[in-house]
Design a protein around this nucleic acid. Sequence first.
DNA 1: GTGGTCTAGACCACC
DNA 2: GTGGTCTAGACCACC
Lengths: 126, 126, 126, 126
Amino acid sequence: MLLSISFYSDIPIYTQIYEQIIIGMVSGQLTFGESLPSVRALSAEIGVNLHTVNKAYAMLRDEGYIKMDRRIGAVVTNPPAEDLTNKLADRLRPMAAEAICKGVSEQAFLDICRSIFEEFKEENGI
Amino acid sequence: MLLSISFYSDIPIYTQIYEQIIIGMVSGQLTFGESLPSVRALSAEIGVNLHTVNKAYAMLRDEGYIKMDRRIGAVVTNPPAEDLTNKLADRLRPMAAEAICKGVSEQAFLDICRSIFEEFKEENGI
Amino acid sequence: MLLSISFYSDIPIYTQIYEQIIIGMVSGQLTFGESLPSVRALSAEIGVNLHTVNKAYAMLRDEGYIKMDRRIGAVVTNPPAEDLTNKLADRLRPMAAEAICKGVSEQAFLDICRSIFEEFKEENGI
Amino acid sequence: MLLSISFYSDIPIYTQIYEQIIIGMVSGQLTFGESLPSVRALSAEIGVNLHTVNKAYAMLRDEGYIKMDRRIGAVVTNPPAEDLTNKLADRLRPMAAEAICKGVSEQAFLDICRSIFEEFKEENGI
DNA sequence: GTGGTCTAGACCACC
DNA sequence: GTGGTCTAGACCACC
């Protein structure tokens, strides 16, 4: 799996790593039980500091996306189900408000959401 | 209109102000042509520095949500329509991925979106 | 002659008045010897403070574009010739630099200048 | 590259920094990919506050002249091409009007423009 | 009154 | 090390 990191983005690098690994999981590039590259290997590959990858992995572990094993390294796991309704709503609300102001209809907004889910399904070969 | 700012949030205060004002616009608490409180008044009301409010207003102005009138301060305007598809998709993608991993179905995700649009409509008395 | 003032512009209102009156002079809407509306009349017409118009008129007077006469008010005059080379160069330099960076060719830049001179000539019925 | 800031000018310091950096880019003193001094270093060098340089850099970034790299600071980039016709015309119009009134011919005005483009070419060793 | 500019200084997130 | 955020306070331009 290839990560594409932007050093110019306003999104912290560790967050980019975090998000792309989760995206890799739902798009089938990473399967449960598979092990991630070591912190050292990944940081060398991307060209970032060890601590940056380390922080991303720690966040993934805290959220239940991976398990850390001293021998095998980081292993992809399926996190326990969680009710994200409130968290998602809090993040979606300002996005929806901006969209409405800029003339994006509810329909268009939902279509963007749907197309993202479609992307993931297609990449999974479904 | 009342702003509720969290000083402990990891979201910058100026972003919270920025987002809540936009939400106020789509939920009918702020109408086009209405003028916002002055930078000084709002900063005093919230209990933050003048510059923090100033930055939020500057962002709103840059995005076309308000105009600065030399005589009366900031006036709410309707920003020009803009195609937000790519921007929204980039923000929605990691959210959707997390949701899927945590067991939130596409249907549930779309329902959260819909309920937010409903909130806004109800607050507008529609 | 009609002034169109924007209260939302970052250009001070008195500067807008100042500039538009000079533009009016070169585009033939104001002829030498003609008198401008009184400070009071113009401020009422535009809907700005007396002091604002007053400042614009004072600047025009200081630069030799008008003469103030207690009886007739402000009269349009032809200012003495002045070598503006350095002043113009200092204002043009950053504009040219931005233009180059944004892909505007020297030719295109000069064409914009020429078209402005054309505008003025046409408005003068030449 | 040396910046010469005037503390007495009516042009804000951050604008002076902004403009001179762009001029540095077209005159070959700053090349694409090169990194600018850090906000702290430049503010110390010029003798202004950190925030003043910060604002100039933010404006440069917003206009696409530099990118902020989380590791090495600000990096000079080539901004996307942009049609500046209207913006330039709006700034050139009052300048041309003043020039005409003060006896500067169209020819002389264009020559000043040309000489500025020449300056830039010469400094680039072309 | 309004916002704009600038300072001095602190703390933090990120790398 | 880097820039980002926020404060407290001053002075100014504009209206």
